[in-house]
Design a binder for these strands. Structure first.
Length: 584
RNA sequence: GCGCCCGUAGCUCAAUGGAUAGAGCACGCGCCUUCUAAGCGCGUGGUUGCAGGUUCGAGUCCUGCCGGGCGCACCA
């Protein structure tokens, strides 16, 4: 479906023919030969760098390779012009019928437009969100949720077998703190005066609900007993409640994970001991003393022997502790078990979406994956930078209700999940993102969500008018694929087809680079091309899509409109955004 | 001190190692009896932080500086 790939195959074939003919020496490495769109459309539709990358190994000048190659390429039907330019590019222009044919294929592909088998069914695990169950999700989590979900959609689209995973950090000190905070709210619900929330406990009002629910279920059962008696049960209860809240928040964003893995269950099942045993057998565990970080020695630093994993043997800067002071496992140790479990379930390819504050954790986890899988596993980490939440240019105040952060829910309730999802993908994940609650719902050109949705709605508007004025024309993609597409001759019409034709390449590129934001930029450009064409019909009635006196031409143009609509819808679908048919 | 990320037009940001570095905003000038003007077109605007290096070719890769962000045992 990616026609650049198809042309690359042909060019490689022609290069082989040139080798057979003795024009080129044999045995050339062709892996670096690329076929891509020239940056400047004036250079043609597609270009290859073959002559330049082969010049050195062939011991020839680029032109000496380019000219005979161009000679052969000119003989192909689809290629109307082929010339050598610049330092040795071979530029090609494709025949109009080629583009018409491409539009027809797009329309027939329907929902599969842009799909490919790049991934060949390879299993990929994407772990994202994975927020601690100690509070509601924040706007920061929203970005991770959107990026992870869009990556999942993207990789599915190009043929990977994707598993969407959430790792629940329900072990360790933070959930104990949660339990204590919830217990306090529980006593409050039973009528006690609890006063100020002590330092170190979670102050958010959302825990009042948890306290009340516990009081309703268990009455005063846990009120006057020792902490050791109530903690495990209150903890379990609070985690369940908060995970339910998390799932609700995610559902409000349209995010649904396939698997929730519990750190506690993993640990209790002995998975960490297994990891330890595995690493010990390979001599990767030892007891040692770590150096304090230079220039920033913690106040309470004490030199003492710790159980360490030899992460430095796998690219990390230092070796990493796997037991805490009290002998329990570190978060890292449990996370190793988590990654080993994923690997064992068949996911040699793993992607984690983390907040930028976890950047310092990347190397050790990658080192762990290497060590635990004998180098067979591969972990990619996408770090999401901060989201700066603004309202009309001013930073948004934190709400007390939630515990001094802005929740995902507040934002979704205010602007809608589609807006959140789209805007979160308008920046590279490792760049900071400004999210202005007022701007993102503005119905104007400088709001990319609106701009793209408007183009999609305009397509539907045209199709609705067509239905009313020329009911004899069938408007579904399959029917329109049969239209006489050779009637599309205006350079802007052809230009739009060319742009649409780039969709599969865009999808593949975004998937390979793990960069879903490219979809948002591409859709913005498609929308711009469409708006331009639409407006041209205002200036020149002959360019309007609907030509009542010429049904054949109308059908061809409606095919283009449908193709645009399908492409935008296809992109929004991967991003998890519902395309709008009307904006009124 | 060390590690990771970032540095591109006045602002916010694009650009799988490719040709003359692109959009939007802002600024200036045009376009509404019409399928949604909630839009379109034209113009102004650049030493890609600095200095070297690799390459036929560097915003992109490597090294060193400068500036900003994040992190740095026993939290997650």
């Amino acid at each position: 479906m990616n026609f650049y790939t198809a042309f690359r195959d042909r060019i490689v074939r022609e290069l082989a023919a040139l080798q057979d003919a003795g024009t080129l020496p044999g045995g050339l490495e062709l892996a670096n030969v690329k076929v891509e769109p020239p940056r400047d459309p004036a250079h043609g539709d597609i270009a290859t760098n073959a002559a330049m990358v082969l010049a050195k190994p062939a011991g020839m000048k680029p032109r000496e390779i380019a000219e005979p190659l161009a000679e052969r390429l000119r003989a192909l039907d689809e290629i109307t012009a082929c010339e050598v330019a610049g330092p040795g590019f071979v530029n090609m222009r494709l025949a109009t019928p080629f583009w018409a044919e491409l539009l027809a294929r797009l329309l027939q592909a329907g929902r599969d437009w842009g799909a490919s088998d790049l991934g060949q069914g390879t299993p990929v695990n994407i772990e994202y969100v994975s927020a601690n169950p100690t509070g509601p999700l924040t706007v920061g989590h929203a970005r991770g949720a959107v990026v992870g979900d869009a990556l999942a959609g993207l990789l599915s689209k190009v043929g990977y077998d994707v598993c969407r995973e959430y790792y629940v950090n329900d072990a360790g000190g933070q959930v104990d703190t949660l339990a204590r905070s919830a217990h306090l709210r529980y006593r409050e619900a039973l009528g006690e005066q609890i006063g100020q929330i002590p330092e170190g406990l979670y102050p958010g009002d959302y825990l009042k609900d948890v306290g009340r629910a516990l009081a309703e279920r268990d009455g005063a059962k846990w009120q006057a007993v020792d902490e050791s008696a109530w903690l495990p049960e209150v903890r379990r209860f609070a985690i369940d409640q908060l995970m339910a809240l998390v799932r609700e928040d995610l559902a409000a964003m349209g995010v649904q994970h396939d698997v929730f893995t519990s750190e506690r269950e993993l640990t209790q099942a002995g998975a960490v001991e297994e990891v330890l045993g595995y690493l010990e057998a390979r001599g990767l565990i030892y007891t040692g003393v770590l150096e304090p970080p230079k220039g920033k020695k913690p106040e309470d630093w004490e030199e003492r022997p710790q159980t360490l994993f030899k992460a430095s043997a796998f690219g990390d800067d230092v070796d990493r502790p796997i037991r805490k002071h009290d002998g329990s496992w570190t978060y890292f140790a449990a996370d190793m078990a988590n990654h080993l479990a994923k690997y064992r379930r068949g996911y040699a390819r793993m992607i984690n979406v983390w907040g930028a504050d976890h950047g310092g954790y990347v190397k050790r986890m990658q080192a762990a994956v290497k060590a635990l899988t004998d180098g067979e596993g591969h972990l990619h980490v996408a770090l999401c930078q901060l989201v700066k939440l603004l309202r009309a240019g001013e930073p948004v105040k934190m709400s007390k209700r939630s515990g001094n952060f802005v929740t995902l829910r507040e934002v979704v309730d205010e602007v809608g999940k589609d807006v959140v999802r789209f805007i979160m993908l308008t920046r590279k994940n490792d760049a900071q993102l400004e999210f202005d609650l007022e701007k993102v719902v503005e119905q104007s050109k400088d709001n990319p969500v609106f701009y793209v949705q408007y183009a999609h709605a305009r397509c539907h508007s045209v199709l609705r008018h067509a239905e009313a004025e020329m009911p004899e024309i069938a408007l579904d993609g399959t029917a329109l694929a049969q239209a006489r597409l050779s009637r599309l001759t205006d350079s802007e019409e052809i230009g739009l087809i060319k742009y649409l034709a780039g969709w599969p390449r865009t999808v593949e590129g975004a998937a390979e680079a793990y960069e879903p934001h490219r979809l948002a930029f591409y859709l913005h450009d498609v929308a711009a091309a469409f708006h331009g064409l639409w407006t041209k019909g205002k200036d020149d009635a002959a360019l309007r899509f609907l030509q009542p006196d010429d049904p054949e031409l109308t059908r061809a143009r409606l095919a283009l409109v449908r193709g645009t609509q399908q492409t935008i819808a296809s992109g929004l679908e991967i991003m998890g955004v519902d395309p709008l048919e009307e904006l009124r």
